[in-house]
């Protein structure tokens, strides 16, 4: 029996004739921070969404602890409680305030009473440094604040693993930092995280392992020093060069 939090074996995903994932495998240990890099279309977002079956894998298996996520009989709602997901396009619930957004999971899914859910939500908002914005409506918050609320919302479920799907890509540059700070803090606190991102500096400093995806397969995998310092694959080098240019330009 493996101690891995998440085990993925040979995950494949096709949209009709288009093969997006062509056999990706991964084992994630507790407390690890995995960063997925790759060009658009390399399959990294699809991979992440297959993990909690928001997208259906065409074949392959995924295990969350002892539970097979990909089983036909899997109780998806229960499995998803154990994974937290933060989206690129926020998906905060606009008909609720910030604190209500964070409370929603614990109340509706975990069945917590309103007062308990409320204090839990406030603690989560404190973690992301947004206590003073608890009663704000979602559209009154900046992009960075909204994303932090989204993180708090996922954290409120006390997940075993957090999935981040390009959470800073849609933000204005000045707002990216506050979100990455929160994410680094989570990592330091020992959260198991799988992060799809373009933020090189973040990957270099926070990741335990970096995976490079290209056209649906992992072409390179290793600690950040190796990937950034001495990449072996030509495409990796080209991708990193392009990203480095973008980083320097901003």
């Amino acid at each position: 029996m493996s101690t891995a939090v998440l085990r993925v074996k040979d995950l494949q995903k096709s949209f009709g004739a288009l093969e997006v994932l062509r056999g990706v495998s991964l084992e994630v240990q507790r407390g690890e921070v995995i960063v997925l890099l790759g060009a658009s279309g390399s399959g990294k977002s699809s991979f992440l969404r297959c993990l909690n079956r928001l997208e259906e894998p065409s074949s392959g298996s995924i295990y969350l602890g002892d539970v097979e996520v990909t089983a036909v009989s899997a109780n998806l709602a229960q499995i998803r409680r154990r994974m937290g997901m933060v989206f690129q396009h926020l998906n905060l619930f606009p008909h609720m305030t910030a604190v209500q957004n964070v409370m929603e999971g614990p109340r509706t899914v975990l069945g917590l009473r309103r007062t308990m859910a409320h204090s839990l939500a406030l603690r989560m908002l404190a973690k992301v440094h947004l206590t003073d914005k608890a009663e704000a409506r979602t559209w009154q918050l900046s992009g960075g604040q909204q994303q932090r609320v989204a993180i708090a919302r996922a954290l409120a479920m006390e997940p075993e693993v957090m999935l981040f799907d390009e959470v800073t890509s849609a933000l204005d540059p000045e707002l990216v930092g506050e979100v990455l700070t929160v994410m680094k803090q989570l990592a330091d606190d020992g959260m198991t995280m799988i992060v799809v991102t373009h933020e090189m500096a973040f990957a270099r400093r926070v990741a335990d392992r970096v995976l490079m995806l290209d056209q649906g397969v992992v072409i390179e995998e290793g600690p950040p020093e190796q990937i950034f310092g001495a990449p072996t694959h030509e495409r990796t080098r080209r991708f990193l060069r392009r990203l480095a240019w973008e980083e320097q330009a901003t």
Binding site: N52, L54, L76, A77, Q78, I79, R80, R81, R82, M83, G84, M85, F87, N91, L92, F93, E104, G105, T108, V109, A150, R153, A154, M157
Partner: peptide
């Protein structure tokens, strides 16, 4: 998707 991701 966000609602389902929370486990609803």
């Amino acid at each position: 998707q966000a609602a389902l991701a929370l486990g609803m």
